[in-house]
């Protein structure tokens, strides 16, 4: 029953979610809304689980004085401060909002902005035309990089009335080779997802029940 119960439940919910897509039946629609509401509750609980797990992980690090425990103090301090600031004042104003606007947002934006420097350094060191395929990728990359900024509009040739710029070639690369590849991947992923969903509904795929299921 420990294994059969979840498989039966999975089958019933799977069939319900499949059928509701094709019928306007009021009872099925109401059950569909129930499932969506429960899903949000379950997701909300996983967030709480995440916060508790994060707290316990860092608390253990601090109590055992493990390497880098000082960072854990900052993590727990920040976590508790934001929770209490939101509860005591409001998430829309006061210390919570101030911390978000002047600490969290600039720090996250700064970390992401550092990527520009690392991308420049890494592409200089690693992007080499070692063979035909690498050269093709390199050429397409260079054209798209320049074609996707205003500078790309200015670099090009005029053939008769038509101005063919790097922006034009970049658009062609995105519209045709890129789109064809992406569509192929999407169709493959879609078919894979459908197959996996059917296997879960009929109980062939049971890895979600844990090991040995």
């Amino acid at each position: 029953m420990k294994k059969t119960g979840p498989v039966i439940l999975g089958f019933l919910v799977g069939i319900l979610m499949l059928v509701q897509y094709f019928t306007p039946n009021a009872w099925i629609e109401a059950r569909y809304n129930n499932v969506l509401d429960w899903k949000q509750v379950v997701f909300g609980m996983t967030l709480i689980l995440g916060v508790v797990s994060l707290f316990l992980y860092h608390w253990r690090k601090i109590s055992r004085r493990q390497s880098g425990w000082g960072y854990s103090v900052v993590t727990i301090g920040g976590l508790l401060f934001m929770i209490f600031a939101a509860l005591i004042w409001s998430p829309e104003a006061g210390p919570y909002r101030w911390m978000f606007d002047y600490v969290q947002a600039p720090m996250q934006a700064t970390m992401f902005a550092l990527l520009a420097f690392y991308v420049a350094s890494a592409s200089y060191r690693a992007f080499r035309a070692r063979g035909f395929h690498a050269a093709l990728l390199l050429t397409a990359g260079v054209i798209v990089m320049l074609g996707r900024v205003p500078l790309g509009e200015l670099i090009g040739v005029r053939i008769g009335e038509t101005h063919i710029s790097l922006a034009t070639i970049s658009s062609w690369i995105l519209d045709y080779p890129n789109l064809a590849a992406k569509r192929g991947v999407m169709i493959g992923v879609g078919l894979g997802m459908t197959a996996t969903a059917i296997k879960i509904i009929v109980g062939i795929e049971r890895t979600y029940l844990g090991r040995g299921a």
Binding site: V119, Y124, F127, R128, V142, M145, L146, V149, P150, L151
Partner: peptide, 19 residues
């Protein structure tokens, strides 16, 4: 846009230099 254009141009120049 000007900053992004210059940054992209420089990255491309570094890639060409490396090659």
């Amino acid at each position: 846009m000007d900053a992004q254009s210059m940054a992209h141009l420089l990255i491309v120049l570094f890639i060409l230099l490396g090659n």
